[in-house]
Design a protein around this nucleic acid. Structure first.
Lengths: 343, 343
DNA sequence: TGTCCCGATGTAAACGTTTTCATGCGCGCC
DNA sequence: GGCGCGCATGAAAACGTTTACATCGGGACA
């Protein structure tokens, strides 16, 4: 059915070896045979079978990408960065998403054996230990945003600590004393790191952390909206600023405040985290922490390629931290002289 | 290096055939041998080599996805829909993006031969004819948002015509007479269809199309921002509404208007197209055309699976149109009694 | 003129599976 | 008690490549 190298060889009156040599330029071939082979190959629309090639060469020219989800601009940007780097190296991407638990990751990983040269795994909700058992032995792996395991060749992570610190410092400098926080998903590594960062930074700034002002969230716009609603409805100390653990939730909170008639930043300041592309387009534009998500992906891919090409690098776990930088836009201002009214 | 089925067979004192039978449950095996094989396989962390499996089985359990780009929520949603459907069928996704011309598509497609069972191609900037030559012969293909070619097993497209029509009708009903338009990329199939739809709907509504109010765009937020700036600066008839060919550009326009001190929708109404998730979170929330992008992807994948499993379906080109529905939010209102002032 | 070497090509093995075919063995049946 | 049948298993071919090795001329050199 499909045309194979044998078909080309037959029609060009040469052996399959010669065809292979022509197509891969792997050995000198007389010019006229070369031309003849190429002609026949083009005529038959021949393209080599990837599986066979991979099997023989022991190199798939593909990277496996395991993601917890695909919803929202974050993953879009991440994948874009990875793809860009992979494409430069002539590698394809085998993508598999919505793997939230160790078992899901394990299944996805097994399905990739033999079809990828290395793995990029982002599983922020899976514990380091479970991840270690889910990862394969022979396949170089780079972990994203998760506590690094021994199995991995490298780990790339966001500097959540300094990111959260700089936000709190900024808010404190503006005069805010009461800063609410919206968490990410409970077992998510980034989420917990940012919560820890928030607490530590608040302490260091000499500001109190009111537990009633730490709201649950799930990294989605709707989660942020819900949390902001809860905040508006809640009794107790009135926050003058809200720090959301990611931009999506900050955007959701913005809507909730807008609906409630709040003026931002006059009534309350809002900060996000990640700097997804949309952050500068919402109203007011969102003060946030720039993470360069596409760079995060690209760096992870680059590290994986290094582990693949440089056998010496094996065995040593390389860690890389993507810096986090405060981006001041218009969603923050000084605290109001009197706290906003609940309605 | 990597553990193979042969290793398992040797340690379990059986032939490779038996191991294969156990792992695939493809033939009855005595219970004790079965247990022994499974035990050894687990012990060795064996997982079958995908390339070898694909080669022998002539089935890759993977779908190729070719996209023009990965930037923004549109592709993220599309990919999510595809992934969801593929995962249900136990298929992985081989993704390759940033293919804008026929040659790029052709290269990507060739790289996928033998590693995927079918192809999902979105190449809105490639002409139908070039696409036909770029697509492979033996591989079932579903085309997204592009004029269908004969080679394809199916095509899924957005109902751009009725989508644009309903927007113009909505604006006309509100009393708008002068409606500006921001185009997508010049050679993009969706973009041109939406422009055509805008023109036709305006004509049918008895409204004039001022060529000076048809602005160039590129489907990005920044493009929309630039176009809106141009609109503000331009002389000539003052539009009371702006229709952007996609949501990203509408969001960009929103920012430009906001920066210029316009009140939306009092000074000008804004409409988008696609209903990306963020559309309901911008301020004001965006009136747009709901396309259910994830469904678009999922349907495309479903059609591909049908072509794969049902050989009868081959040869007939199935077309499916994803409906477009007006979503009224807060970015539209009646036209101002006097046109907004340029500043 | 014989030897050596090198360039062009062919032959066949190998990659790790799945699957067809063959084989052996126990058991029921006449 | 011999015959046939079906079940469990093994041997080996096949999938479509790449590549190590063999082969064959022909030219350079002694």
């Amino acid at each position: 059915m499909a045309v194979t190298i044998t078909d080309v060889a037959r029609l060009a009156n040469v052996s399959v070896a010669t065809v292979s040599r022509v197509l891969n330029a792997s050995a000198p071939v007389r010019e006229d045979t070369r031309a003849r082979v190429l002609e026949v190959a083009r005529e038959l629309h021949f393209s080599p079978n990837g599986a066979a090639r991979t099997l023989k060469r022991r190199q798939a020219s593909a990277l496996g990408v395991i993601l917890p989800d695909l919803y929202g601009e974050f993953f879009s940007e991440l994948l874009r960065g990875i793809d860009q780097e992979a494409q430069r190296a002539g590698h394809a991407l085998l993508v598999s998403s919505s793997h939230h638990d160790a078992h899901g990751v394990s299944v996805a990983v097994r399905a990739m054996r033999g079809r990828v040269d290395g793995l990029l795994v982002m599983a922020p909700e899976v514990s380091s230990a479970s991840l270690a058992t889910a990862l394969p032995d022979g396949l170089p792996t780079v972990i994203l945003n998760t506590a690094a395991t021994k199995h991995a060749a490298a780990a790339v992570m966001v500097d959540n600590m300094s990111g959260t610190r700089v936000v709190v410092q900024h808010l404190a400098a503006l005069g805010h004393q009461t800063v609410a926080f919206i968490c990410g998903p409970p077992r998510n590594a980034d989420a917990t790191a940012r919560l820890r960062g928030y607490r530590a930074a608040m302490r260091d700034a000499g500001l109190p952390v009111h537990e009633s002002l730490v709201f649950r969230g799930d990294f989605t716009e709707d989660g942020g909206w819900q949390a902001a609603r809860a905040m508006i409805a809640t009794a107790g100390p009135r926050p003058t600023a809200l720090f959301a653990a990611n931009d999506a939730m900050a955007v959701g909170a913005l809507l909730a405040f807008h609906e409630a008639g709040f003026d931002i930043p006059r009534d309350i300041s809002v900060v996000g985290f990640d700097d997804i592309p949309i952050a500068r387009y919402v109203t007011p534009s969102l003060t946030t922490v720039r993470v360069a998500i596409d760079v995060l992906g690209a760096r992870a891919a680059a590290l994986l390629f290094r582990a693949l090409t440089d056998p010496l690098a094996r065995g040593t776990v390389h860690r890389e931290v993507i810096p986090a930088e405060l981006i001041v836009r218009h969603s923050c201002g000084p605290p109001p002289t009197t706290a906003p009214q609940t309605r």
